[in-house]
Design a protein around this nucleic acid. Structure first.
Lengths: 165, 165
DNA sequence: ATAATGTCCTACTTAAATGCTCGGATAAAT
DNA sequence: ATTTATCCGAGCATTTAAGTAGGACATTAT
């Protein structure tokens, strides 16, 4: 089992998409700036998210990424899984062949733990996160800090209007 | 957050001690054989367990390790912690300074997850594991397979008798 | 057309950790 | 004195995370 910045980055980036839903495609450059994640690294993560059909992409200027499903339908567990960070606590992938073909002494304990974690992360959707107070607070701060050029150009507000329809 | 064979080995070894409590000191060679863990690696793990005062050691022939507290008083979480496998899911050690000094978008989510895992593993003691059916089954199988020389020598049964007093 | 802006893709690098092995020192029992 | 065990340190192969670098391709705006 393993949960590092990899999985955390993925969830954070997906939550960023959910927060800016309805504003058209969001570029990775925007996410990189807002969330403090390396652009190149984001590209690699989104390649996996796209292959798992959690996001869809639009290429070219004004392009970026959008959620491929309703926010309610995307769980944190799905996102973490998509970037290959299993929250599986057993070493045998639940096979029970941990100790040279046989079940090890603590196999069932780690199975129980895996169930706990998985059901917890499975029960939280991006929609659930979006409405949380602690998430809103941080999102507001980030928007205030990075809103400098959002409504500066005519094309940008035009795009936002189009997307809002 | 990370849970690999390191933490699983530690819990398995501690459970082995709990299962053979009352039989005097248990050597790492015995645990190595029963649980299929490298002896040298066990030594390293038990060095940490000893420094965390979870076990006490007896040197010399007939020596080995014993639990330093009642089985009921040792939780799985303590054992995992002792070998430096934190089940902490945040990257900021709960400080909230995840994103260049400020709180990141998903900080509270990972805090919640950490609480879940920690309270789960904290609520399970070695005593709880010893009485579980799945644990008993595996333990019986292991005892049957590795009991060949336990009661063969006079010194061994003598030692067991002494320890039982 | 062409320049700019984005995704897409591959390969490389650095650092850290895991899971071991090996060699030897020390303590205690036979 | 020899055996049995814990102790202790160094070292090593492998994997992974996390990020860099460079470029190809698609799309929009000039």
């Amino acid at each position: 089992m393993r949960l590092t910045t990899k999985g955390r980055y993925a969830v954070t980036a997906m939550l960023d998409l959910a927060l800016h839903e309805g504003q058209g495609p969001i570029s990775l450059a925007d996410i990189s700036e807002r969330q403090g994640i390396s652009l190149s690294y984001l590209e690699q993560l989104f390649a996996k998210l796209r292959r798992n059909e959690l996001v869809k992409s639009v290429r070219g200027p004004g392009g970026g990424y959008q959620l491929n499903h309703e926010k309610q339908a995307i769980s944190v567990a799905q996102v973490v899984d998509a970037v290959n960070e299993s929250v599986e606590a057993t070493g045998c992938a639940r096979q029970g062949d941990c100790q040279s073909g046989e079940t090890c002494l603590t196999h069932h304990l780690w199975c129980d733990l895996s169930n706990q974690i998985h059901s917890f992360l499975n029960g939280i959707s991006l929609a659930d996160l979006v409405v949380r107070k602690d998430v809103k607070d941080v999102a507001d701060r980030q928007d205030r800090r990075h809103s400098s050029q959002v409504f500066l150009t005519a094309t940008d507000s035009l795009r936002a209007d189009k997307a809002a329809v």
